[in-house]
C-alpha cells in the first residue's frame, strides 16, 4: 500500500487518452454531483458542495492536467447549466488549480505503508491543495473591483471552510475505494 498517486509510466503532465477520458468523466461527475449543496447552519451563505472532493481526488490519481480539467471544466459546466455563463470564470480556474496542486503535492509525497496515516496525509494534502488553489480568487480584486478584506472574509475563507470540510471527509473515502481497483487495473 502506498500514497503513490500515479503509476511510474505516467508523468503528471501527460495528455493521452486516459487523461482526456478520466478528465471528462470527472468533469461530468463534478457537474452532476455539484448541483447538490447544503448550507452550514449558523452562516448566511456558506454552502458545502460535496462534489468539490472529486477535484483533488482526480488530481491525485490522474495527474495535473486531469485534475485541472475536472475542476475547471466541471465548474464551467455547472455555471452553463445554471445559466451563469462565464461570469465567475476565475472561480472555475481556482477549482482547476485545486486539482493541479493536488497532483503536484501527491507526486512529491513518498509512499506510506500505514493505511491510517495514508488517509490522514491524503486529507491534509487535499486540504492544502484546496487552500492553495482557491487563492486564485484573489483576482476578484481586479475582476470585480472588491477590496482585500472582502476577498479574504467574504470570499476566500468561507469557500475554504466549505470546501475544506468536503475534501477532508470525502477524498480519503474516494481514495480508499479506488486504491485496490487501481492496483488491479495497473493504474
Amino acid at each position: 500500500m502506498s500514497t503513490e498517486a500515479l503509476s511510474p509510466r505516467h508523468s503528471p503532465w501527460t495528455i493521452d487518452s486516459r487523461t482526456v477520458v478520466f478528465g471528462a468523466v470527472g468533469a461530468a461527475l463534478y457537474a452532476v454531483l455539484g448541483l447538490f449543496s447544503f448550507l452550514i447552519p449558523g452562516t448566511q451563505s456558506v454552502t458545502v458542495r460535496p462534489a468539490v472532493a472529486l477535484v483533488p481526488f482526480f488530481g491525485k490519481r490522474f495527474g495535473v492536467i486531469t485534475g485541472f480539467f475536472v475542476g475547471f471544466v466541471g465548474n464551467v459546466v455547472i455555471d452553463l447549466i445554471q445559466g451563469a455563463g462565464l461570469i465567475w470564470w476565475n472561480w472555475s480556474v481556482a477549482n482547476g488549480l485545486v486539482g493541479a496542486f493536488a497532483a503536484l503535492i501527491f507526486t512529491v509525497i513518498p509512499p506510506i505503508s500505514s493505511e491510517a496515516l495514508r488517509h490522514v496525509v491524503t486529507a491534509l494534502g487535499a486540504l492544502i491543495a484546496t487552500a492553495l488553489g482557491l487563492l486564485f480568487i484573489i483576482t476578484d480584486l481586479w475582476v470585480l473591483g472588491i477590496d482585500f478584506n472582502t476577498f479574504l472574509f467574504l470570499n476566500y475563507l468561507p469557500a475554504l471552510l466549505a470546501n475544506g470540510i468536503a475534501v477532508v471527509i470525502l477524498v480519503p473515502a474516494l481514495d480508499a475505494a479506488w486504491e485496490p481497483l487501481a492496483k488491479r487495473a495497473g493504474l
Binding site: 495528455i15 487523461t19 482526456v20 477520458v21 471528462a24 468533469a27 461530468a28 457537474a31 480539467f69 471544466v73
Partner: peptide, 15 residues
C-alpha cells in the same frame, strides 16, 4: 489542445 477540446465534447456526452 485538440485532445482537451475533445475532452470538453466528451464531458457533455457523459452528462
Amino acid at each position: 489542445s485538440q485532445r482537451l477540446a475533445y475532452g470538453v465534447d466528451l464531458t457533455f456526452r457523459f452528462l
